[in-house]
Amino acid sequence: MGEILVLVDHADGVVRKPALELLTLARRIGEPSAVVLGAGSAAADIAAKAGEFGAAKVYVADGAEFADQLVVPKVDALTQIAKAAGAAAVLVTSSGEGKEVAARVALRLESGIITDAVDLEAGDGGPVATQSVFAASFQVKSKVSHGTPVITVKPNAVAPEAAPAAGAVENVTVEFTGKAAKVVSRTPRVSSGRPELTEAAIVVSGGRGVGAAEGFGVVEELADSLGAAVGASRAAVDAGWYPHSNQVGQTGKQVSPQLYIAAGISGAIQHRAGMQTSKTIVAINKDEEAPIFELVDYGVVGDLFTVLPQLTAEVKARKG
């Protein structure tokens, strides 16, 4: 079995959970190697973590370019490493940036690309990826038929499993080539202290029915009682009630938690596209005709301002 390169997504010197999921999936199709780019002094810790999750080798490259220029330095590095290692496949997390990096790497390797896989398994002619398409109404299995398969995988495709391996660090000097946009400044997102939306086991989302920015108070209180992330529909985001970084849907985040609670959300196709693969779906909406009820495992027809606080109180009571 060949070497499967996993581009490790990290922020603030910490490995992000989707990278551990990729390493877990990579073991199904070959021998995982991690690629850690632009992590500075955190690289050693990140490499150790990648080793814990099955990376036999960890390629580490550093340089100001990774932070100062958009996308291209990562493409330079990943392509160079893939060629030198004779990689059997390249896996990248499906984020905006991850997909852009993966696509350009695929082109340079003269390979096909599959984006937004929700599952990955070994097949006769290479890895087989599952995509969930047309707002999750179809499951498509496909493979790359030319070159080194480059596949981007959505967060939450699999539960990360530790499987200690050597994690031997190999430092790489990258030749930077391409024409890139300059990153003039970067403002890190302020953490809400709540779980990351795409990684959370439970998501509580509010929509236009929440009525105002202050209305999100009842949504946040329920989320905090459950240890959940907070999401929002585009209507709520467009109204300025909640940050765009919390939008769930086609043009926001695509989430696939164990439990999704939609409050005051009608269930438009573009919203569904971001949450329909959730394991259990619950909705609170005062309109019994709201299309969201077609999706639910449990629904309450009622006013979210009475139902949510009652639920929160009950959750707190049960948790003691």
Binding site: L70, G96, K182, V183, S185, R186, R189
Partner: peptide, 11 residues
């Protein structure tokens, strides 16, 4: 507006 940060870009 990326996942982890907001960036100002130019080219």
């Amino acid at each position: 507006d990326g996942d982890a940060a907001t960036e100002q870009l130019e080219a």
